[in-house]
Design a protein around this nucleic acid. Structure first.
Lengths: 360, 360
DNA sequence: CTGAAAGCGCTAACAC
DNA sequence: GTGTTAGCGCTTTCAG
């Protein structure tokens, strides 16, 4: 790293920019002077407003020409000052590294781009100051709207500040319970039910669940649905079959260890995310356990890697694109929204190689 | 989706904002009036400038109080107009969904946050208009600097426009060859050499390579290094052992199919990314091939999932944080840079379960 | 110590 | 058709 730095402190900004930044960006006034018209005429030509007032074709051409020649770029700050939208969509997420949220961000970015928006990333990172994300992204930037990905309800000040913020805020995968902000959610109950039905149909009677506990939001909904579904099949869910696990690969691997150390280990494990399930797949392999012969494992989300694990993962496909579309609509239109909608979309069971007949 | 929309068209923006947007944001003038001082005094108190001119403690307190009471937030657009930096770092990437780049974005975001910056995401998505990313992010937003992730050299207009752009641009994983922009790169040669040495040490003599071809940048450097290393061990690299594969899980799985269909299949495959290697792991499993007993597979990058595949992946760890740090330094400081540096960092071999003794 | 005023780049009345 | 003017919210001289 040291090779990238200089020893003597000096004006970094000047040094950095000197290589390319020539004269400062040309303004409308520069064009006006160069063309010999008034600055407002330039504005009329360049602002793209569909000829609020007619402009002589000759003038227009000349202005356009010099503008191009000077390499003119409109100054978005000045436009923004005049009340134009910033065309910036803030997306706040805890961890971009989670493949599921990476996919969601991708979808949001694509959806935003379609509408001429760009995405500003906000971190609600564990290590960061709680208010940081909001202060940084919301107040310091002028986003036109904000998307919240995942359950951030354990960031109380964050949620609170959101209530009286001046721009639309929409939450995704924030659970379906009311929390004061418009929310787009998925039907966790039906997704988990499909999984448990599938497992029960394969003859499994000892089914466990491992995931992050004590938080609100989707994960807890999935655990609750798990318990209800298993009971619905006349099966038991002893406390030992519901264990806490952080939502990482490692968390999944460790959860598997603990479950397999039980006097009577489960024959199937339901994970509330694919990330956890992938960790379990790895853990099972480390135990010398064959999936699905010795153990069935299911995930939730259907992230891209789920189709390419060893073996491929049976999971519940999240309607990510549709959810993001709904959320972006709620946030920045173009569709109008009256009142606070809380659309809930349906997931779909995807059966692959990680589930099979119960052993024995 | 239809439930999220209304039938009758109306003013979407108004409807969306009506629920929370009250009076427009308080300005310094509002505070000035409420406090009974002049607007410039308010500015002096609030702008945080370390007392360019002394302010009476009493006035200061009163201003601060009303500012807080009114919920004042500085308007970044107005500040920017006055020449203040936007504190926005543009990050242009082809695919956020690639776990490797997701990690890089995370690192960049963290590093930017440390410096008070936020990250604006730009897509150089295949489907998007080439100029879109640049136009959208660079010209429409006023980023203070730009980071390019991955090899975007097949976007000629993009690169071209970058040359004469007014802000610092730094490229990462763009290959180490000159391309006119400051670049932070990794020593692909030494990484691949370590892998091939490891494989040769395990007795492998038929080693194949599969990755995207015909592009410049890191991947090609890895392929070249592969050929050189294998020859260095006195081994052959027939054309059939170097095949084209798109950099996806599916691309990896398909490459494995083709390699295994060869009359004399390789006993080890070197993949230039972990994503490809993971696809190969899956493909091998689908073929009933055991890794590493029947086949060794190596990756490159050491993405988080690499430690949790089945089996865990032998790979080359990318010094992502260090590289991003160097790039952000080059782009926005605080360290000054004289001239165009092209730091190159060292990767490190990580041996896990996907490589073993050559069969037979 | 504080106020008045200019101006960043742009848009939008309002003149002519 | 085009020019003049005011002003978005803020920082920054310049006068008091």
């Amino acid at each position: 790293m040291s090779s990238t730095r200089q020893d003597a402190p000096s004006d970094g900004a000047a040094a950095r920019s000197s290589s390319r930044r020539g004269a400062s960006a040309p303004t409308m006034r520069d064009i006006a002077e160069a063309t010999g018209v008034s600055q407002s005429t330039v504005s009329r030509v360049l602002s793209g407003t569909p000829t609020a007032v007619p402009i002589a074709e000759a003038t227009r051409k000349r202005v356009l020409a010099t503008a191009h020649e000077l390499g003119y770029r409109p100054n978005p700050l000045a436009r923004g000052l005049r009340g134009a939208p910033t065309m910036l969509l803030g997306v706040i997420v805890r961890d971009i590294t989670d493949p599921f949220f990476a996919g969601a961000i991708e979808a949001a970015s694509l959806e935003a781009n379609k509408r001429g928006y760009n995405v500003v990333l906000g971190h609600a990172h564990e290590s960061a100051d709680e208010a940081q994300a909001l202060t940084g992204i919301l107040e310091a930037r002028h986003c036109d709207a904000l998307l919240f990905l995942g359950d951030l309800r354990d960031r109380p000040t964050l949620i609170e500040e959101l209530q009286d913020c001046r721009i639309p805020v929409v939450a995704l995968w924030h659970g379906s319970r009311e929390s004061g902000i418009p929310t787009v959610s998925v039907d966790n109950r039906s997704g988990v039910m499909a999984v448990v039905d599938h497992l029960a149909g394969l003859g499994h009677e000892r089914i466990a669940f491992a995931g992050p506990r004590g938080r609100l939001g989707d994960i807890t909904e999935r655990e609750d649905a798990f318990v209800a579904s298993v009971h619905g099949h006349g099966l038991e869910t002893p406390e030992s079959y519901r264990i806490d696990a952080v939502n990482t690969y490692r968390g999944g691997a460790e959860a598997l260890d603990r479950l397999m150390a039980l006097p009577e280990p489960p024959t199937a494990i339901v994970a509330p995310t694919d990330v956890l399930a992938m960790g379990m797949l790895h853990g099972a392999h480390a135990h010398g356990l064959r999936v699905p012969d010795g153990l069935s494992i299911t995930g939730f989300d259907d992230i891209p890697e789920a189709a390419y694990t060893v073996p491929a993962l049976t999971t519940v496909r999240m309607p990510t694109e549709a959810m993001v579309l709904a959320a972006v609509d709620l946030a920045i239109g173009p569709d109008e929204v009256i009142g606070d909608f809380h659309p809930m979309l349906e997931p779909e069971l995807v059966i692959r190689g990680s589930t099979g007949q119960a052993p024995g």
